[in-house]
Simulated scan of single mutants.
Amino acid sequence: MEGLSSIESLQALSALLSTPNEDEEDDDFKTVGPVSKMGPGHIGATSGKDGSERREVSATYVKKNTKAIWDDDEVMEGAQFDDLIDPRPQPKYEIILKQSIGTEDLFLGLSGKDPSSMCCDSMLVRVKLPETKASDLMLDVREKFLDLRTPKFKLGLHLPHPVHSEEGRARFITEREELEITLPMNRPLDFINLH
C-alpha cells in the first residue's frame, strides 16, 4: 500500500508541475515504470507528441556568436597588446605600493593605518630602460594594464590592482635611465579602507 501511495503522490506532483496542454491526455502517467526506476527526471512531461524529448534552454546559456571561443568579458584587459612575434625584450621593472602618512599616523596611530597593502593609495612602477631617450617612449595606461614601448624594449604589464589611469604621473630620470610611473589606486570601497 505504501508503494502505491508514493506513486500516486508522484503522479499528483507531476500533474501540478507540468503545464497541461488541451490536446494531451494523461498518457504520461501510464508510462511510469516501477518505483526503483523513477528519478527526479521523471517529474513532469518528458516527451512531446512525436516522442522526441523536449528541452528548453535558458537564454543565459545560449551563446551570441556560435563561432566565438569566449565572450568579450572573459578576455583579460591588455590581451590585444600581447605580440608573440615581437623580438624586443621585456625591461626590468618593479612595482612598489605607497601610502600617504602624516605625523599623526607615524607617531600616534590615529588614522588606523597599518603597513598592509589594504591601506596603500598609490602604486609606483619603476622601469629600467638603458640607452633610451624620453622622446622614444610610448606609454598607454588602462585601469588594469600598462603598455610601454620603446625601440629596444616592450612591456605589457597586468597591474595587481585597478588604477585611475587619467590621474597618473610619469617622469623619466635621465641619469638613472629609469621611468617612474605613479598611479593612484582605484578602490571601489575607499570609504571603508583605513585611510
Results as ranks from 00 to 15, higher is better:
residue 95 I to S: 00
residue 78 G to P: 02
residue 55 R to T: 08
residue 23 D to M: 11
residue 73 D to P: 07
residue 34 P to D: 10
residue 57 V to D: 04
residue 112 G to K: 10
residue 114 D to M: 06
residue 42 H to A: 15
residue 4 L to W: 11
residue 67 K to H: 05
residue 98 K to C: 14
residue 164 H to V: 01
residue 131 E to K: 12
residue 194 L to V: 01
residue 130 P to A: 03
residue 15 A to L: 07
residue 129 L to P: 09
residue 31 T to W: 07
residue 27 D to W: 14
residue 20 P to S: 15
residue 161 H to T: 04
residue 189 L to Q: 11
residue 164 H to C: 08
residue 67 K to I: 02
residue 69 I to S: 06
residue 8 E to V: 10
residue 188 P to C: 07
residue 101 I to H: 12
residue 178 E to D: 14
residue 124 L to W: 08
residue 91 P to S: 00
residue 119 C to L: 00
residue 27 D to M: 05
residue 171 R to D: 01
residue 141 V to K: 07
residue 160 P to M: 02
residue 30 K to N: 11
residue 153 F to V: 00
residue 180 E to Y: 05
residue 145 F to A: 15
residue 171 R to W: 10
residue 153 F to A: 02
residue 130 P to R: 07
residue 144 K to L: 12
residue 75 V to P: 11
residue 53 E to L: 09
residue 156 G to D: 15
residue 88 R to N: 07
residue 18 S to A: 13
residue 176 R to A: 15
residue 136 D to E: 14
residue 14 S to G: 02
residue 80 Q to C: 10
residue 51 G to H: 05
residue 192 I to Y: 12
residue 160 P to F: 06
residue 145 F to L: 12
residue 147 D to Y: 06
residue 168 G to E: 07
residue 146 L to C: 11
residue 156 G to T: 12
residue 178 E to T: 06
residue 30 K to C: 11
residue 148 L to D: 00
residue 40 P to V: 02
residue 2 E to F: 05
residue 61 Y to I: 06
residue 160 P to S: 00
residue 109 G to I: 06
residue 126 R to P: 10
residue 107 F to Q: 09
residue 172 F to H: 09
residue 161 H to K: 00
residue 79 A to S: 09
residue 61 Y to G: 08
residue 187 R to K: 10
residue 190 D to H: 08
residue 69 I to A: 02
residue 26 D to P: 09
residue 107 F to R: 01
residue 45 A to S: 14
residue 74 E to F: 11
residue 183 L to N: 01
residue 57 V to W: 03
residue 59 A to L: 11
residue 25 E to I: 06
residue 80 Q to D: 08
residue 3 G to L: 14
residue 71 D to N: 09
residue 60 T to I: 04
residue 116 S to F: 03
residue 186 N to A: 15
residue 130 P to G: 06
residue 110 L to I: 04
residue 158 H to L: 15
residue 28 D to W: 13
residue 16 L to E: 13
residue 46 T to L: 10
residue 25 E to K: 08
residue 117 S to F: 02
residue 121 D to S: 03
residue 172 F to P: 11
residue 9 S to C: 08
residue 17 L to K: 01
residue 161 H to E: 11
residue 42 H to C: 14
residue 173 I to A: 05
residue 78 G to R: 07
residue 87 P to Q: 02
residue 51 G to M: 00
residue 67 K to W: 14
residue 138 M to S: 15
residue 89 P to M: 02
